[in-house]
Every structure is written in structure tokens, then in C-alpha cells.
Design a protein around this nucleic acid. Structure first.
Lengths: 225, 225
DNA sequence: ATGATAACCGAACGCCTGTTCTGTGTCAAG
DNA sequence: CTTGACACAGAACAGGCGTTCGGTTATCAT
């Protein structure tokens, strides 16, 4: 029998061990452990002692318990981490090529073909569906302050509102570009994100294909090579 | 009694209803429902019918079941979502001000003072600890292709290796800048991420305070205003 | 119409599971 | 030393829970 431990206050070693086990078990099984499982893994031979510790952990706010039901417990965090979204990575976006838009039944969600994004980073409007990501290839999107290797997350769209940042294909110019869109009297103004650069002015007769709205840009900074 | 449904193949309406209920319940309680709870909510009066459906959902790959244990089931996705990290948002970074570095016991993890990032977006080296985020203020970091409002995630550092992107405070110039760092024969070269812009060359005698390494940049694209 | 099969039912059962209770051991304070 | 509080144990129990079985009902193909 383990020597009894006396702690005046706070989280003891055994409390922490139990929390760690619950977290680990939950991650693996997607459901909580039973009290007997906790006991077995934390060297506690009696279910009433496990219960005793769980009561304390509940009181201190580390867990919540649904009483009298099997496995009725969950970890709390100071703030619970929110949801995450998997966004399909549909290809590359580069200046001189049309924008690859995934078909509506595009459904590749393997780890290599998608990226994970915290839902909390998304603008409120765009929490939902249909988002896709493109990897920037080339250094020709400097006007958008977007660099080679950046990931651009887009929402498919054929229309935009003034002030939306859009991904457009200008077939007359054989150019893909990412700019803020404004409809004007005689045509369209595409405003770069880079404030030192000039907008593109298009007449109404010029081809302009909006392919999507830009929702987010992510840059993983790697070592310069 | 509900009319019996005969479907030759695939997911039926009741299958979908059960999946939806499991997902919803799991989100709320952080543990799966029991078979009786599924029955109650999906208008199935017999536990054996719930079991029958769960068997089918398991066979089709939508759920996994741990047999003979209470609430032993979990939804599968094509790929399970990974872990998320909460990074404290320690203030703003702007060109003419020193870089605010959080103290080592900086521990503010409320939702307003932190951002959530998918672990899978992190470079392998930086999975761990000590990361902090700063919000860019001002339009003076164009050479880094970083815009007003962007979030920069940094790892505290006083030294860097060649090719690291660093956040430095140049006290002689009263300037904060983000650039690739290279140690050279007579001093240091700070190379902008923007390839069209020229590096800063510093002599060894000039003040250069490395405050952190840049790990990631996130831009939430909002409407132009 | 008939037979095969899938969908659905309830009852029963055994095991899993949480809870309660009583007791012992340890520690700290008076 | 006594006392009260805390930590720990095991037994017992009731109820939660999954599984099995035998049966009925509805659908579908021939």
C-alpha cells in the first residue's frame, strides 16, 4: 500500500496523475475512462478513492462530472480550445495561370491534401463550408503582400461586394491576381493590399472572372535558403 | 410505429440521424451517448435496433466501437483532426517601438488574450512552448510582406542562425524590423522577405537586439475599409 | 402469391459502472 | 495523548449499459 500523502492545498501529484491519464485516455478513445480504469492506471485499488479524487478535481474546476452515468466526466481547461476546421488544399495559385477551383464534390480530406485551421481564426461569416486552400507559387503576388509558399484560404464566389479581397482571373492579360474589389462607374478597380502600389483599372468590357474571396493567409516562416 | 424503410445500399436517413445525434452529443458532453440515449433521441424503442444500426455504421466506417464497454464508440472522420495550441497574444509590434516580449511567467490564456493555432501548421521544431503572438500595427513592415493587422507568432530568442527570420530592435535607429538574419564577416545582413527590397547591412559595432524568431504569420482578410 | 431478406421489436441477461458506507491509517494541532 | 480532518481501503449495492435471442413486420424480387 502506498504511503498516504498529506497536502494542505492545491493539486497534488496524484491529482495531476489522474488528470494526465484522463486527458491521454480521452485523446485516444474519444470517450472518458471509467473509474475502475482510472484506478488501474493510477495505482488506486478502490473505486471510492477514485471517486474521492474526482470529487476534488471537480470542486477545483479541473473536471466536470455528469452524475450517475457511465463515464460521465470531462476535462475543463481554463478556456476550452475551440473547434478546428479541415480545409482542402486544392492546388497552387500562381500569377500566370488560371485559378484551380475544386469541384463541388471535392472531398479530399487526407492530411497531405488539407490543412487544419482553428475555427476561432475564421471571420464570423466564413465559419462554414466550401472553403479551400491554395499554395502560392512564385514571387509575383507581392502587390498582395503574399509570398511564395504562403497558403491562401478562399471561399468560392463568382461575385463580390465592394471591399472584398478576391482572387480573379484576367484572361485578357493571362493573369491571376489577389486584390480588393471595387465596382466603379465605368468598370472595376482592383486595389492591391500593398498600399504603395497602384490599382488595376478595368473597363466593363474587359474579362474579369472572380473565382473566390480571400478569407485568410497563412505563412509558415521557414529558414531562408 | 414508424414505417419500415428498405434501402438497397448506402447511408439512410436514420443512419444519418444517428450520426448527427452522436456528433452533437459528443460535442456537448465530451463523451458519447449510450445506446438508450441514441434510441430515445432517434425514436427507436429497442436497444437492439440501435445496436443493429451501430453495427452497420461501424461496418461502413463511420464509427468505431469499443465492444462491451459503456459508451464505447466514437465517430471517425476520414482523418482525425489533430491538436491545437493556444498562443498568448502579448501586444502589438510596430516599426518605431521596442518589441514587447512577455515575461517568462506570462500566463494569460483567456480567449481575448490568445489565439488558437493548429499544431499541424507549426514547423516541426516549434511545436512546443514559449511561443507568443504580436499583432502588427502600422504599415511599415512592407519589406517583410507583413501588413497592418497581421498576427506574427514568435519564439523568444536572443540569438539566431543564418537564415532565421528574426524580430530585431535596432536601438540606434529606433526601429523594429522583421528580416532574415545573416552573420557576415564584418557585421550582419538583415534580408527582407520582399525580394525587391534591399537588405540592411549592420556593422558589428551597431546595436542589434534579437528579440525572437518569427515562426508564422497569419492574416485574417477583412473587408477593405 | 411466395419466399427471402432487411428492418424493427421487446425481454432477458450478464457485466460494467458509479455511489455509498464503514472502517483504518496518517497527520497536525492542542 | 486526544481529536478532527484527510487519505485510503474494500464490500456491497443499485442501476446503467451492451448484447443476445426469438419473434414480427415490411419490402422486394420472382
Amino acid at each position: 500500500m502506498m504511503m498516504m500523502v498529506r497536502k494542505s492545498k492545491g493539486l497534488g501529484e496524484r491529482h495531476q496523475r489522474i488528470l494526465d491519464f484522463i486527458a491521454s485516455y480521452q485523446r485516444e478513445h474519444k470517450h472518458p475512462p471509467s473509474i475502475r480504469e482510472i484506478g488501474e492506471h493510477c495505482d488506486i485499488s478502490s473505486t471510492s478513492v477514485v471517486n474521492y479524487y474526482l470529487d476534488q478535481l471537480e470542486k477545483s474546476g479541473h473536471i466536470e462530472r455528469d452524475r450517475k452515468i457511465s463515464r460521465g466526466m470531462r476535462l475543463t481547461g481554463n478556456t476550452p480550445l475551440g473547434d478546428m476546421l479541415r480545409v482542402p488544399l486544392a492546388g497552387v495559385i500562381q500569377a500566370g495561370e488560371p485559378i484551380p477551383i475544386p469541384s463541388t464534390d471535392f472531398n479530399t480530406f487526407t492530411a497531405e491534401d488539407s490543412i487544419e485551421v482553428a475555427m476561432s481564426l475564421m471571420p464570423t461569416r466564413e465559419k462554414g463550408k466550401d472553403l479551400f486552400a491554395l499554395k502560392v507559387q512564385g514571387e509575383s503576388m507581392i502587390d498582395a503582400m503574399i509570398n511564395d509558399g504562403d497558403i491562401v484560404i478562399l471561399k468560392p464566389a463568382q461575385e463580390a461586394r465592394n471591399g472584398d479581397m478576391v482572387a480573379v482571373w484576367l484572361s485578357d492579360r493571362n493573369e491571376t491576381t489577389l486584390k480588393y474589389y471595387f465596382k466603379e462607374k465605368d468598370g472595376y478597380r482592383l486595389q492591391p493590399a500593398n498600399p504603395t502600389m497602384k490599382p488595376i483599372m478595368l473597363k466593363k468590357t474587359e474579362a474579369l472572372e472572380i473565382k473566390g474571396k480571400v478569407v485568410m493567409v497563412i505563412r509558415k516562416v521557414d529558414r531562408y535558403n
